[in-house]
Amino acid sequence: MLQYLVILLDDTSVSYCHYENPKKVKRLISLSDLKAGILFAMKQNLMIQFVYPDYEIPAEYQKEIETIDHHKIAPQKIQLKNADVVVFNSCKEFSTEKTEENKDKIFVLRANGKDVARNVSTFAHDGRLNIIITDIETFTENDFSLYKETLEQLKNTVKEIFLQENSPQVNLLTDRILLEKMNNCNAGIENITLAPNGKFYICPAFYLEDENDTVGNLTNCIDIKNKHLYKLSNAPICQKCDAYQCKRCVWLNRKTTREVNTPSHEQCVVAHLERNASRNLLLDLQQLGAWEDKSIKAIDYFDPFEVKDKF
């Protein structure tokens, strides 16, 4: 069931996930739609995540936002003091942040695979860091090899922080260790997006790709056709998979395979490289006496599609 409502405050609201936001022209959500969205969330018992643009929004909007429990997702550029999630759009942006002062915030780093590979040694952050690789769909065999090396380096960095008796969380490595079942994005099932035009979308990426791809509005509410296809139980590959940290991005799925319930080969291999690196981290930490109750089994494939007949 729905638990979260994402509200894009502006057409230029920052991307915090795989998609790019190509929009450059500001279009703020109308105050009436913002109020109606908040009222909708209150009635449906949804936690709101407000997504900020890179400019200061009007005072009356700020006042309205503070009328309900919520999370703020904001670009690093605007230095929003009470942001819950801070988004960096490159490794360069991330490297300038004073991470020690913001240990309580979630950092989202969006960067392509090569950028991450070049800068992985600078990722020593003792807090929550979500790394979003933005070019998964174009990965080649060489990129997979490079990503495997990147994850190995990241593993060593995380291990070092653990050795200093801290508790870092990096989505690509520590989530899989802690999870016991799939923890996907679940857009369309657990969360839905209200865009600046006052209409609902599966997620911000669906809005940015095609404004006509709406699933309802504030007047007539939400109507998702073939809603069951967003559920894990209707995803033939994913329902048997144990790369639990994978976001299972339905937008990326549709972009690469035309079906929201089917991931691409590249998505699966990347998720399994992360899974296996998580296993290596776990084995290393268990030698140090940590997380002895956890386990991730060894597997001999990178893409569950290739062993689908054995499931």
């Binding site: 590959i237 690469t256 035309r258 089917t262 691409s264 080969h265 590249e266 599609f305």
Partner: peptide, 8 residues
């Protein structure tokens, strides 16, 4: 990638 949905 476009064949995957059919084969699963």
């Amino acid at each position: 990638n476009l064949l995957r949905p059919y084969l699963t």
